[in-house]
Design a protein around this nucleic acid. Structure first.
Length: 765
DNA sequence: GATGGTCATAGGACGCCCAT
DNA sequence: ATGGGCGTCCTATGACCATC
């Protein structure tokens, strides 16, 4: 109301500018305000909400307008009125109200580092109409709607409404008693008297002071700036409390109020008003807690079940342990111990409004002792204090002697793995004196490491495969299909990576002609899980398939092979002699072309060259991948052609994976394809023929130059300190070269590796 | 020393009220 | 209708003490 006229005009001017800016702005997430003064830095707050950093001040999101966003200073509890307005894309920040404090660059840096430690996730999303949706809001909505039990869903609106009604009722009563809003300082009094949840009664010698906790804090911080309500007599306060009690008891249908009726309150006595006030304060506090717990349950309840016979205890859904919630009073719905249990026993971390448990139950049970994540207090202390703890010279020397990264797992895990690779276990090294999961890299920086990151990823990938979430590529084989993720396939197979990279289709369909479906399925499982179970007699066949697809971990470099050349890419017109799938039999009848020459080049290079020249992105492209007849001389036929059929993957496989893999769908697909290309060797107008040129042979790799990389999935769960390996390299190669044997590693105590070889077949070294 | 119990506090999201 | 100001509600977390 005291806004100067110039500010008003500026506001109108800003509005026009902001509107203009909003119309042209794009998504901004996590911009750095250091680069552009017109762009404020947006990071993620502790609770997952957006936080703005501008010139050393931090702001939290206040209101989202259609064309701008209002932020206010995080120190508003210190009566800072600092506020700022940005566009919907968080550009052009304009300070509206000045701060009453200096900028806190250290706190801003902490928030920035924490945000970066989270992997710089997207903070704001610009959706239609330039409406900015906060991730936290959506998360909270999801949490509230999905995680809350049905009974609580039904109760919540009622409780909220009841609480509001209660506050309104008290407001009216206190208004009748003459407490009115009289400005900035007295406005607080009004609210203080109207709300019961935050009342703190301070009994003095002659008067009773009604104030809030915040105001008590204020008194401690600044004696000159606080607001107190000093009533004329104790009777007024006692009467107020009585009215409050009556108001609370007027609604017996409310669960919390029924709760309160059972509270044993200290006996009312005119001579013991202090005790009474203390009792009421406790009662009010208890009521507030009950209300909070009922209306918005903590995220920990996604991992706990309240014991039916004992509300004081909750059973962990992960390990089954019964955890005492804390407090002898069931009305105090404490979750501190539940948080601590998740944090200590399961590495739980609260991200956003959801608890992420990093260790699966099986892992927890398989180890003799659970992994203890470094104490959060330790981490937090480092987060809050920008300056790291001073490092002694001894520690610095120790760090210099340990140039490699420490993967901190103090307890050896039992890892079951099937892989033809060899694990090199250097002697265990620990960083004494250095916090476990904090590695000091520079004197002014700390490295935050999520110790269970890899295990979390390992647990997440199979679920993504099973649920077919975010799939973007389909592998078709033998009339069945398997939906996968490009990212995973690319990460596990260089061949597929190049194939997919050169075909920027949104959802390509790769037809694997000569592969068996079980091979593809097993390889995909291996890529996602890091392990796969396969019958012993089928192992060579699977390894051949892996070799054709260059699946990492299964198809390692094999210098002993007679034909070390990778699979080849040849034109479709080339003679294709393979084990044709019945549905593609017509394609195999195609006339052999004499022009096709076996090209001893890498399929990646050939494909890259050809595609970069001739292939344009098409919405859908089907890729036929044909494995060579003999594993020793792999020749892979790849034909790429635009699919004119307006089929989307969902249309093609409209149902779930099982249904979509029915032969009928596949037949439909193949018939449509064969109509388009009946012979397979004729180039139609809409078909793009790919020509592959000959590439020089890759240089022979010396055996000494080859390095066998340990399986990624193995090194994640072990107490491995990576180190430049100079010793035992030969042994490792020997083991890994032992014909891709079916090896199971079991990491036991003392990092002992037990290798059991199931395969007796050996290839010549 | 580990775990449980209790309490207090900081921080964040949101709603309400009032002035323009 | 919009913007500014303020309070409420809620959760995470730490401190301290007790118990095993």
């Amino acid at each position: 109301s005291k806004m100067p006229q110039r500010m008003k005009s500026a506001s109108n001017k800003n509005k026009a500018e902001i509107k203009e800016e909003a119309s042209t702005s794009s998504v901004l997430a996590g911009n750095s305000g250091d680069d552009d003064p017109n762009v404020a830095e947006v990071v993620l707050s502790n609770k997952g909400g957006p936080k703005l950093i501008h010139h050393g001040y931090m702001y939290t999101l206040h209101k989202k307008q259609p064309y701008n966003i209002r932020w206010r200073c995080v120190r508003r509890t210190m009566y800072c009125r600092g506020s700022i307005i940005t566009t919907t894309s968080c550009t052009k920040p304009r300070v509206r109200m000045e701060h009453n404090h200096k900028p806190d660059f250290a706190a801003a840096q902490v928030a920035r580092k924490r945000y970066l430690a989270l992997g710089k996730p997207s903070v704001l999303t610009n959706v239609e109409g330039n409406t900015v949706k906060s991730m936290n809001v959506s998360q909270r909505m999801l949490h509230k709607e999905n995680d809350i039990p049905e009974e609580q869903k039904d109760r919540r609106p009622k409780t909220r409404a009841t609480a509001r009604k209660k506050n309104t009722l008290l407001q009216r009563k206190y208004d009748r008693r003459g407490i009115k809003n009289q400005g900035h300082s007295t406005a607080r009094t009004n609210t203080t008297a109207s709300t019961a949840g935050r009342l703190v009664l301070v009994a003095c010698k002659d008067t009773v002071k009604l104030t809030t906790r915040r105001l008590l804090q204020e008194q401690q911080r600044d004696r000159n700036c606080h607001a107190q309500v000093t009533t004329s007599s104790k009777e007024d306060i006692v009467e107020s409390i009585r009215l409050e009690d009556v108001a609370m008891k007027q609604e017996p249908e409310d669960e919390e109020d029924c709760y309160l009726e059972t509270v044993e309150m200290p006996a009312l006595s005119p001579s013991s008003s202090t005790n009474r006030h203390a009792g009421v304060a406790h009662r009010v506090r208890s009521h507030a807690r009950s209300l909070r717990a009922m209306t918005n349950p903590s995220a920990v309840w996604a991992h706990f079940d309240l014991c039916a016979n004992d509300p004081l205890r909750a059973q962990c859904r992960i390990c089954g342990a019964v955890v005492v919630r804390g407090g002898a009073n069931p009305r105090q719905c404490g979750t501190t111990n539940l948080h601590r249990h998740l944090r200590v026993h399961h590495g739980g971390r609260l991200i956003g409004s959801r608890y992420h448990v990093l260790q699966s139950p099986s892992q927890t049970n398989s180890t003799s002792k659970t992994i203890r994540i470094a104490a959060q207090s330790l981490v937090r202390s480092h987060i809050r204090n920008i300056a790291p703890a001073p490092i002694s010279q001894q520690q610095q020397q120790q760090q210099q002697r340990q140039p490699k990264t420490l993967v901190l797992k103090t307890i050896p895990l039992k890892v079951k793995q099937v892989a033809p690779t060899t694990i090199k276990m250097p002697p265990r090294q620990t960083s004494q004196g250095v916090p476990h999961n904090i590695v000091h890299q520079q004197p002014t920086e700390v490295c935050l490491r999520w110790n269970s990151y890899h295990s979390n990823m390992q647990n997440s990938f199979p679920s993504l495969l099973d649920s077919e979430q975010f799939v973007d590529v389909t592998l078709a084989c033998e009339g069945r299909s398997l939906k996968c993720h490009k990212m995973i396939l690319s990460a596990c197979s260089d061949y597929l990576a190049d194939l997919l990279r050169e075909n920027p289709c949104q959802h390509p369909i790769i037809l694997m002609k000569d592969l068996k479906f079980w091979e593809v399925e097993a390889l995909v499982k291996f890529m996602y899980r890091g392990e796969v179970n396969v019958a012993h007699d089928k192992l060579p066949q699977l390894l051949n398939a892996a070799e054709a697809l260059q699946v990492k971990g299964l198809a390692g470099p094999n210098p002993s092979s007679q034909n070390p050349k990778p699979p080849l890419l040849i034109p479709q017109s080339k003679p294709v002699v393979s084990q044709p799938v019945p549905r593609t039999a017509s394609e195999t009848k195609e006339k052999p072309s004499t022009s096709g020459v076996s090209i001893p080049s890498s399929p990646k290079r050939a494909q890259k060259r050809q595609h970069s020249e001739s292939i344009e992105p098409k919405p859908f492209t089907k890729i036929r991948l044909q494995r060579p007849v003999t594993p020793t001389s792999p020749t892979t036929t790849v034909k790429m052609e635009p699919l004119d059929i307006p089929l989307s993957p969902t249309e093609m496989f409209p149902e779930n994976n099982e249904d979509s893999s029915t032969p009928s769908n596949f037949d439909k697909l193949m018939s449509l394809h064969e109509e388009d290309d009946p012979g397979g060797n004729e180039t139609t107008d809409g078909e793009r023929e790919i020509h592959f040129c000959e590439m020089p042979e890759p240089p022979d790799i010396n055996e000494d130059q080859m390095e066998f990389v340990p399986t990624d999935f193995l090194e994640q769960e072990q107490d491995i300190v990576e180190e430049t390996e100079t010793t035992s390299n030969k042994d490792c190669k020997e083991e890994s070269r032992e014909d891709y044997s079916f090896v199971e590693f079991e990491i036991g105590e003392g990092d002992r590796i037990e290798k059991e070889q199931y395969s007796k077949e050996k290839k010549p070294v």
